[in-house]
Each structure stands twice: as C-alpha cells, then as structure tokens.
Design a protein around this nucleic acid. Structure first.
Lengths: 213, 213
DNA sequence: CTATTTGTCTATCGGTCGCTACAGAAAGAC
DNA sequence: GTCTTTCTGTAGCGACCGATAGACAAATAG
C-alpha cells in the first residue's frame, strides 16, 4: 500500500507563522477523527478494534497512538465532537424555543430526522456506543451524559413551571424522564430499522401528554 | 479447587426409569443455564467471555461445550429461557387484560418493577445484551425479537379498534411504536440507575396519551 | 552541511478470545 | 470383573486484542 510521503497535513496550533519542529503529520487530524467517530458510532466502543480504526482512518497504529493517545482517549475526544455536533440538537431546541413544550417537540422532531439520516449511522452514539462494555470508565462516562441530558430537560421544565407556563403541580422529573425515554426508544428503533416518518408519528403521539394549546 | 465427583446431576430425558449410559453430568444443567443467563443479562453477549461463563457456571470449558454447544447456541437458549420467564410479562399483560389500554398500562407498571428488581440485573436483556456486537446473527436475533414485541402491541391495538374499543382512526402502528419506545427507554434508564418509583411515574405519564375513562 | 525533533513503518509484545485434543474418571451393559 | 459410553480436567491451539520498541523518513534550527 503506497501512502503519501509529501507531508501536507494541517499544522496544529500554527498561529499563522511558526511551524512545528519535526516531521509533519501526513494525515489530517480532524478528518481522521471524523472517520473514527463514524466507526465508533456504528459499532460501539469495544466492537471497534484499533485495527478497524487504523484501517478506516488510513493511518498506522503508532500514528494513531501518537496523535490521539490510547483507544479510550480517542473515544473520549470522539464523544466530545459528537456532543458538539450531531448530538447538540436537543440542547439547542431547549435553549432556543420559547417554552419547554415547544423545545421538547422540536427535540423529538429533529431526533426523528437525525436518528434516521442515511448520511451516518442510525440512532444516538451516546445512547448506544458503550452498552455492552467491559471498560467501566467508558460505560460510566456515557451513562453520565445520558443522565445529564435528562437533567437538562427537567431543568428546562422547572423554568417553565416557575414562569407560570406550566401548572405548578407538574411533575418535572417524571415529565423529563418520559421525554428521555421516548428519545432513547426512538434511537433504539432507528437502529432497529424504523423509518423517519414512523419516528415522527411516534413523537407526535408522545407530545399529547403535554397541556394542549 | 475440589469439585463434586459423585454425579447426581439431572437426567435429561429420563422417563423415570432408564438412566443414560456413560458418566453422568456432574452439574445441574438448568442451574448452570440460569447462571449463564444472569451473566449475559448483566454484561451482554460479547462482553461475557467463555472464561467468565465457566467460572460463574462452575464447570470447565469442555463441559460447557458438550452441554450447550458453542457460545452462540448457549446464548440462544438463554434468550429463549429469558423470553419465557423474566421477559414474558408484556405478552401476559396484553393477553390477560380486557383492553389494549389496560394491557399496556399493566405492561408499563410491571416493567417498572421488573427492570429495577434488585434480585437480578436491571433492564431488559433482549434490549441490551447485543447492542455493541460483532456477531450479526446474535445482534439480528435480538433485533427481530424487539420488532416482534412492537408488532404484538400493534396487533393488540388493532384488535381493540376492530372491536370498537378504540376510535377507528387510531394510528395503531404509531401507538405501538410509542409504547415500545417507552419500554425501551425505561429499560435504559433502569440500567442507568433510575429507581422503580421514578419509572412508575414515567409510565403513568405515558398512559396519558390514551383515551381517558 | 549537521543536529534535533517529530512522524511513520515494520514487527512484535504479552494477554485474552473462542474453542478443542487428549487422557483419565465414572457410570451402565454384559 | 471387562467393554463401552459419556463426562471432566489439563493443557494448549490459532486468531485477535490493545499497545509499543526500534529503525527510518522528513521537517526545522543552527
């Protein structure tokens, strides 16, 4: 296998002038990271081997370890990238819509589209990438992110209760858990082959539990 | 490690009189199968190694392979046992309650209890044991069971529509998918540490989408 | 140029995976 | 008793796991 030897990789931290010292990296770090993201998303943390990663990223194992640390720190970085891109629609919806109800409605609508997008693996990586995992740190990190997402929904609902937009006796925790469960179930069903319209119909039904207009 | 040598294992197929020929099995097959079930339930198919299994089941690897075939057929048998015991509450609820609504309500109520039972691993084995799995047969087998469960809910709803117990324009497929999503989300949250009362509150909210009494 | 620094390549490490060959042990058949 | 059948324990198979040592390549610094 012939690979490029004329290094034209991106300069990290090059503030315009100063190039780094030694031999330049022969691959684009961000591109390789995106490849790793897709692999982890599709197969999960443990089912994606370092050998899979080096093949998909197009680099050798020593390059991977030099650029990203070990497999676990590569995965950590992938999770951070995912949370800021494909996984950010929920937080955006809650932050940008005027009410919790509209925020959740948009979250579910966008989840139906995102989780079935043919351009990338189906479902949510945070929900599925470390389910059957022998590494408790990796498993726990994603669990905390899932619970944090539910807590964010609950917090948004509490804000609406405080603002008088929802009845004072609303069970914010249970309502948030319900929303989280619907999202998690939608992700599972997207992985199991559900189509976008099916998830949209599911989401619409789920919204019926909210106070109607 | 000293193990029993006086064979008193169960006689398979012994119709009362005729014992089988050679050396009797030194362990109880059903008990060992139950141990394997708990291990697979807790850690999933791939994250449970044959070495884990032999240690937990208290037998050597050759005994395991002689009694159960390979790892995959042991798992298949575990799944069948699970579906007939811990995983049977949903089908029972749908079959025994007079309406789909009451069936689903009972299903969700029992799921909250079952998924958080401290006597065994949390959540549903069918939903979680083969998520990050390199074996497509195992992964596909559980996916088919999940989709079959949703189809069973849909079928029960359609029966109520035909009987006039639900409005004729009810979207049975979407309603069934919603129920399935709630169950799957409850299972995930049970794994993530949710308590029984929290899941019960979640389930109660989910029931609000049905026509009220 | 040489010296230094950093990345890539080949080849491999020790460990674990699922699985099994083989010899011996424990039962019934005779 | 001996013969046959079946199960058990040891010991190890080839394949893959995550990770790295060491030699070489490609850049800058002087």
């Amino acid at each position: 296998m012939v690979r490029m030897t004329t290094g034209q990789g991106t300069r990290t931290k090059s503030g315009g002038a100063g190039r780094t010292r030694g031999r330049p990296r022969s691959f684009d770090r961000a591109t390789a990271l995106e490849k790793a993201l897709l692999a982890f998303w599709e197969h999960g943390y443990e089912a994606t081997s370092v050998s899979d990663l080096t093949r998909i990223m197009g680099i050798g194992a020593p390059s991977l370890y030099a650029a990203f640390g070990d497999k676990q720190s590569l995965f950590d970085e992938v999770v951070r990238v995912y949370s800021g891109t494909h996984g950010a629609f929920g937080g955006r919806a809650l932050a940008e819509e005027p009410t919790a109800r509209e925020g959740v409605a948009r979250m579910l609508r966008e989840a139906a589209a995102e989780y079935t997008d043919p351009g990338h693996p189906h479902g949510c990586m945070i929900i599925h990438a470390a389910i059957n995992c022998t590494n408790p740190e990796v498993e726990g990190a994603l669990r905390e992110r899932r619970n944090a997402n539910i807590a964010a929904i609950e917090s948004r609902i509490r804000a609406d209760i405080a603002a008088g937009l929802l009845p004072a006796d609303t069970d914010a925790a249970a309502l948030a858990r319900h929303t989280g469960a619907v999202v998690q179930g939608m992700s599972q069903q997207a992985r199991d082959g559900a189509r976008r319209e099916e998830l949209e119909a599911l989401a619409e039904i789920a919204m019926a539990i909210w106070p109607h207009d």
